[in-house]
Design a protein around this nucleic acid. Structure first.
Lengths: 344, 344
DNA sequence: ACCGGCAACGTAAGCGCTTACGTACCCTAG
DNA sequence: CTAGGGTACGTAAGCGCTTACGTTGCCGGT
C-alpha cells in the first residue's frame, strides 16, 4: 500500500538535515541532547518543508493526546455557546483541538457521550451544564471520570460540583440571594420563581439562595411560588403562564436562567402585562442578548467565556490530590426589567 | 515504557477469542473472510471487554480519519451556533467527532485555522461563514482545499460559494429581494440598509437582492442609504446611529442579518423611535431569539441547523467531478417589527 | 597517561491498529 | 485420484512518530 498522505514526514526532515530520526524528533520537541546549531538547522528545514507532525502517530507513540473533549447541553444555547467560545479560544492559543459533543440535557445520553469521548482517547475532558439529581447517572459519570483520571486523563467541570474533578463554580446560591434581595428592596412581596428542571443541582442552588434571602427578611420560603419547567425559552413561557393563572397576585418573577427569563418576558408581552410597571422580571447568567431585550433584563452576570477558559486552564495544570474548586465572580446587573412593586 | 492506556486492545480480544489479530480486525470491521460463528464470538468478546478501537492507531494504519473539522466565525453567534448544532447532531449519529475552530471573522486567521485542521489530518473540513472579497485569501483557501481534496480529504462550505468545493447555499439574493419587496408593499420609500462588512460576499448578495427589488419597482438603488458595519449587534447599533443622524427621513431599515437587526432595535429603543410606528426593521437569518424580541422581528428564515446537517451529508457522499451546490429554502417571516410607512 | 563523565548523536523497539500476502483445508470437477 | 479454486484463517510488514538505551568523542581531573 502506498503512503496515504503526501505530507512531509519526520524522516523527510531528518534526511534533508542529514541527521537521525531521533535527533530530528528531539530538536522539534525542543528537548535536550541536540546542539543549538543542529536544532536550528532542523527547525529551519522543517519550516521550509511545511512539516507538521502527524498527531495520530505522535499520540500513538507517546500516549499524550492534545485534544480536549467538551460536553455541553446544547451549543446553540447562548450560555453554553459562550462557555464553548472560551474553551475554543484558549485551546487555539495552546495549539489544542476541541472536540465538542452535545448531551441534549439528557443524563443518559450525556454519560454515553462521555464514554465515547474517553474511548476516543481525548486527553482532557471538560464537562459543563448542570449536575443531575439522579444519583445513578451522576455516580456513573463520576466513576467514569475517576477511571479516566487514573489512566492519566485530565478533567474539569464547569458549573457542577459532584463529579469529583476540578471545577469552575459560580456561586449560584449567592446569585439567587442577590436577586431576591434586589426584588425585596424594591418592595416586592409576592415573588414567583420560574425554575429549571427540579433534578438539576444548579436549580437547587439558585433556589436555595432565593429562599435564604427570604428567611433573612423574616419571611417564609414556603410563600414562594416555584414552578418547574426546563431551562429554555419555552420552559419560561409555560412557567409564566402557570404563574399568571395560579398566582395572579405575583409582582415579580425570578427566572433561574436568562433563557427562561426571555420566555417569561415573551408571555408577559403577549398577555399585555407591563414590565416592570406591573411585573418585575429577573434572569440569571447575563447572556449577551440580555442587555438587548426589551425591556433589558436585570440578571446576575456570570463570566461564561472566562469560565470556559478557566476550566481548561485548570485541566492543563498538574493534577492535585483533591479536586480543586475555582469560584467565579458574579454580579447583579440591574436593568430595566425590574422596578418598584406596584401599589395595589 | 509501560503501556500508557489500560484499555483493552485488539490483541486482547484476539487472545480471548483464540484467533489472530487479522481475524479479529476483520470480524470487528465486518469484512469478509471470517466465518459467521467466529465473527459473532469475536464481537461478543469485544463487547464484554469493553473494547473500542484506538482511533489513533486505526487512523495511522488505515489513513482514514473519522473526524470532521468545522470552521465558524464565532460559536457564540447564534447563526453559527445553530449551524454547529446541526453538524454536531449528524456527526454524533454517524459516530464522527467534530473538531471546532473559530476564525473570528478574520480571513487571515481563518486560513491559518484551515491549514491547522488539515495539518491535524481531519478527514472532512466544513467551512461556514461568509466568503471574503479579498481575492488573495479566498484563492489561498481555495488552493488549500483543492490540495486537501486531492489527497482524499472531503470538504463542504456553508453559505459561501467561491471555494471550489461542495456548498450549501441559501438564496441570499432572493431573501434580500423579499425583504425589500415586503417593505415597499407597506409603502416604505425611504429605506436604509445596515449592511455587514463590505468585503463579504453574503453582504453583496443580500444587497443585490434589495437593489433588484427596487429596480423592479422602477426605483433607483442609488436612493438606498447603505451603511456598512460588521455583522454583530454592535455593528447594528452603530449603523442605526448613523442612519438616524444622516438620513432622518428613513422609515425602514433592512439589517442584513439578525444580529445587526438586534443592534438596530436597541438603538431605536434608546432613541425612543417607536417600532414599527415610526420605523420598520427587518433582519435576516431568523435566529431563534428573533421571535422573542420586542417587537418580534420580521426576517428571512434560513434553516441553519439543517444547513449544517446537509453540509456534512454532502461531504460524506462520494465526491463528484464538479462541486455540487445544494440550495436551501428561505422564507419571509413577517412579525411585529414591520408596519405601514408612517404618513409624514 | 588513564579514566570517569557528559554532551551529542544514532539505533531500534515499540505504540495499536490495517491489510497484502501466504498457507492450510475442503470441496468439486475432470 | 488429482488438479484447481475458493474459504477461512495466520503471518508479518508497515503507518509515523517517541524514547530507552548504546555509542562515540571530547573534556578535565588525578
Amino acid at each position: 500500500m502506498p503512503r496515504a498522505s503526501q505530507r512531509p514526514r519526520l524522516v523527510d526532515v531528518a534526511e534533508h538535515a542529514a541527521v537521525s530520526l531521533a535527533t530530528a524528533s528531539r530538536a522539534l520537541a525542543g528537548r535536550a541532547g541536540v546542539s543549538a546549531e543542529v536544532a536550528d538547522r532542523i527547525r529551519q528545514i522543517a519550516r521550509e518543508l511545511g512539516y507538521v507532525a502527524n498527531p495520530y502517530a505522535r499520540t500513538l507513540a507517546s500516549g499524550a493526546t492534545s485534544t480536549v473533549g467538551l460536553i455541553v447541553h446544547q451549543v446553540d444555547d447562548p450560555y453554553f455557546a459562550e462557555i464553548a467560545a472560551g474553551v475554543i479560544q484558549l485551546a487555539a492559543e495552546r495549539g489544542l483541538l476541541v472536540q465538542i459533543c452535545q448531551s441534549g440535557r439528557d443524563p443518559g445520553y450525556e454519560l454515553q457521550q462521555l464514554r465515547h469521548l474517553i474511548a476516543q482517547r481525548v486527553g482532557i475532558v471538560l464537562i459543563s451544564g448542570s449536575g443531575y439529581d439522579d444519583p445513578r447517572m451522576e455516580s456513573a459519570a463520576r466513576a467514569e471520570l475517576a477511571a479516566f483520571q487514573d489512566h492519566g486523563g485530565r478533567a474539569a467541570a464547569i458549573g457542577r460540583h459532584a463529579l469529583g474533578i476540578d471545577a469552575v463554580l459560580p456561586d449560584n446560591e449567592a446569585g439567587g440571594f442577590a436577586l431576591a434581595q434586589h426584588l425585596m428592596d424594591l418592595g416586592h412581596r409576592r415573588i414567583a420563581v420560574a425554575a429549571g428542571s427540579a433534578g438539576l443541582t444548579t436549580v437547587a442552588d439558585r433556589l436555595a439562595g432565593v429562599s435564604s434571602a427570604l428567611r433573612q427578611r423574616g419571611r417564609s420560603p414556603a410563600d414562594l411560588a416555584v414552578v418547574h419547567g426546563d431551562f429554555t425559552r419555552g420552559g419560561g413561557r409555560a412557567a409564566a403562564e402557570q404563574i399568571l393563572n395560579e398566582r395572579p397576585e405575583t409582582t415579580a418573577i425570578i427566572a433561574l436562567n436568562d433563557a427562561m427569563a426571555m420566555g417569561v418576558l415573551s408571555t408577559l408581552r403577549s398577555r399585555r402585562v407591563p414590565v416592570p410597571a406591573r411585573m418585575s422580571v429577573v434572569g440569571f447568567d447575563d447572556v449577551s442578548v440580555a442587555a438587548d431585550l426589551a425591556p433589558s433584563l436585570t440578571t446576575v452576570r456570570l463570566p461564561m467565556t472566562e469560565m470556559g477558559r478557566t476550566a481548561l486552564t485548570l485541566a492543563l495544570k498538574p493534577r492535585t490530590n483533591r479536586p480543586r474548586r475555582r469560584p467565579t465572580g458574579h454580579l447583579l446587573v440591574v436593568r430595566d426589567s425590574t422596578g418598584p412593586a406596584p401599589r395595589s
